[in-house]
Design a protein around this nucleic acid. Structure first.
Lengths: 229, 229
DNA sequence: CAATGGGTTTAACACTAACTTAACAAAGCG
DNA sequence: CGCTTTGTTAAGTTAGTGTTAAACCCATTG
């Protein structure tokens, strides 16, 4: 996948139940999660953990969310973090305070996990869309088009499955450069996936089968490369 | 979508905090932002900046939002601009006055940035729909007609429900481009709606059922696209 | 304001392409 | 020639999608 590294979320609430529910849901969505049970611990954890998103309860022992938010906003390394307040419906005063204090958003309890997930996802959607907006390669007699996951060759259009496409796309993007199987795995499958290196061979086979044998060549003992004319 | 060039937003409020928060969030969403701190400056800036959207606080020194709105509405170059009032919860009177004065919408403080962003995005979704309401697409043997929500195929006319139509219309408008379920949700359902991504599948099913299987193809692990030729 | 009904969303289960693994054949290299 | 690396095929597994039915929502109507 394209999430080179996981988005990190820090959940801060004094109610263990809520923390658990949020943690569970966030992890299921592929986020890396840390938790803290009060404001003081939140700040410490945030510094170590460097979260991208902080879900912050307002009413907490030791140090409430507003004060915590203020402190976090002072820390340069955490300035980019999104802070979302979790508030009980009736603490309206806090809504006002929240934004003065630098929160990016707030949601009212009871929390609907699904809605919260979408909202967090929305925060990062823009970037991922842009990444994909690159991507059309003309090389030799191939026209490789990321937007449609297709290869055009001599008028014929071939649609490739994801992994096969990514493989060809990656190699074609760096023509004449030899990549080892491990490098290909790392770049295309991602750094946190464990599959046998020989898996690459099979995908290479499939790609060659579909576009022809003359594009990807083997360098024995090293790996594969996309061959220029 | 059609954001060839950035949408311009003018934020007018006398509270620097609020201005900052809104500016920050708007820029993050990709809008171009200008600010003004009172009504008089707002009008001047608006003339220079030519915003597409104006966020206007009601209670301001020098010249309040209502009066400012009236003035802006006089200026021909700014007639197309959307004006959204920002009001404190209790100034109910203003809700009434706002629309008399030519505002397009209003929201009450405290402002939820997310909600505001969605609202702004929605303005342009609606707007762009209007533009396209002429919208008729001829593609392959289909004739897709937005004004009646119908598809003509080989003499037969099929009427689709709204979501199904929008889905087909969107894909047909961007043929050969693969869209993930999330992208489709974002573009068709809107950014502030939280539904499961799999909902898209069901609508795809219905559309295929009605117009035939040969138009929309699946790219596994990626999404759907409208297939040309 | 219950009942209806179309549209939409969710949930559950079935199914298959895609992916991975494994196993054997062929090819390169000392 | 052995030994290692790659090619190839087939079989095993899984993640992603298809499909259907049921739940839900909301506007309309009697």
């Amino acid at each position: 996948m394209a999430d080179k590294q996981k988005i990190k979320v820090l959940v801060v609430d004094d109610e263990p139940n809520i923390v658990e529910i949020l943690k569970y849901n966030l992890q299921k969505e592929g986020y890396e999660v840390a938790t803290a049970e009060d404001g003081l611990k939140a700040v410490k954890t945030a510094i170590k953990f460097q979260p991208d998103v902080i879900l912050l309860d307002i009413m907490m022992p030791n140090q409430d969310g507003v004060e915590t938010c203020l402190q976090i906003r002072q820390i340069p390394e955490l300035k980019h973090a999104f802070i979302i307040f979790l508030t009980a419906r009736l603490e309206e005063y806090s809504e006002v305070a929240a934004f003065d204090v630098g929160a990016d958003d707030y949601i009212t309890k009871p929390i609907k996990p699904r809605a919260l997930m979408s909202r967090i996802a929305a925060l990062f959607r823009r970037d991922s869309k842009k990444e994909q907006e690159k991507g059309q390669i003309k090389i030799r007699d191939l026209n490789i088009d990321r937007s449609s996951f297709t290869i055009d060759k001599a008028g014929k259009t071939i649609t490739l499955p994801k992994k096969e496409f990514e493989l060809l796309y990656f190699l074609a993007n760096n023509p004449n450069v030899v990549y080892s199987r491990d490098e290909l795995l790392h770049n295309i499958w991602g750094s946190d996936v464990f599959v046998l290196a020989r898996t690459v061979d099979v995908h290479i086979r499939k790609v060659r089968e579909k576009i022809g044998e003359e594009y990807i060549t083997t360098v024995k003992g090293v790996g594969y490369k996309f061959e220029l004319g």
